[in-house]
Simulated assay, not measured.
Amino acid sequence: PELAGRPVYVTIDIDVLDPAFAPGTGTAEAGGITSKELLAAIHEVAGSDVNVVGADLVEVAPAYDPSEKTPIAASKFVREMLLGFV
């Protein structure tokens, strides 16, 4: 309610995810959230009354992830932000 209608910039650091979901980051931290939880948070912001004026996703380091899980997940999150925040 406090942010309703106010301009908000959303930034997501990929290392919020547990390394099982995004190992390709410079500062992987065990105990992070799941990809599903991050998608839910993006959808929550998208469905709220805040005025998202910009967004980014940072710390993706594909070179650290030969499985390619991290860039695949990151592209999904960016897609959902683009679709939800516009």
Rank of each mutant, 00 (worst) to 15 (best):
G5Q: 09
G5A: 07
G5I: 11
R6P: 11
R6C: 10
R6W: 10
R6S: 13
P7S: 09
V8H: 14
V8C: 13
Y9S: 11
Y9F: 15
Y9D: 12
Y9G: 13
Y9Q: 11
Y9N: 12
Y9E: 12
T11Y: 05
T11S: 15
T11G: 13
T11I: 07
I12V: 15
D13N: 13
D13R: 11
D13K: 11
D13E: 13
I14G: 00
I14S: 11
I14E: 08
D15K: 05
D15F: 07
V16H: 02
V16F: 08
V16T: 14
L17K: 04
L17G: 04
D18V: 02
D18E: 02
P19I: 08
P19Q: 02
A20V: 14
F21C: 08
F21N: 04
F21Q: 09
A22R: 08
A22Y: 01
A22H: 02
A22V: 06
P23W: 05
G24Q: 00
G24L: 08
G24R: 05
G24M: 09
G24I: 11
T25M: 03
T25Y: 10
T25H: 03
T25N: 05
G26V: 00
G26L: 06
G26W: 07
G26K: 02
T27P: 07
T27Q: 06
T27N: 04
T27E: 00
A28K: 07
A28N: 06
A28Y: 07
E29W: 05
E29S: 10
A30N: 10
A30C: 12
G31Y: 10
G31F: 09
G31K: 06
G31V: 12
G32K: 07
G32L: 10
G32M: 06
G32Q: 01
G32E: 05
I33Y: 03
I33D: 08
I33A: 07
T34R: 11
T34M: 12
S35E: 13
S35K: 13
S35M: 12
S35H: 14
S35T: 15
K36R: 15
K36E: 15
K36H: 14
E37Q: 15
E37D: 14
E37I: 08
E37V: 07
L38M: 13
L38Y: 00
L39Q: 12
L39Y: 04
L39I: 13
L39C: 11
A40E: 14
A40F: 12
A41S: 13
A41K: 10
I42S: 06
I42G: 06
I42H: 01
E44P: 02
E44Q: 13
V45Y: 09
V45P: 06
V45Q: 01
V45F: 01
A46S: 06
A46C: 04
A46P: 02
G47F: 03
S48C: 03
S48T: 01
S48N: 01
D49S: 03
D49F: 05
D49T: 02
V50F: 01
V50R: 02
V50H: 02
V50C: 05
N51Q: 09
N51I: 07
V52E: 10
V52P: 09
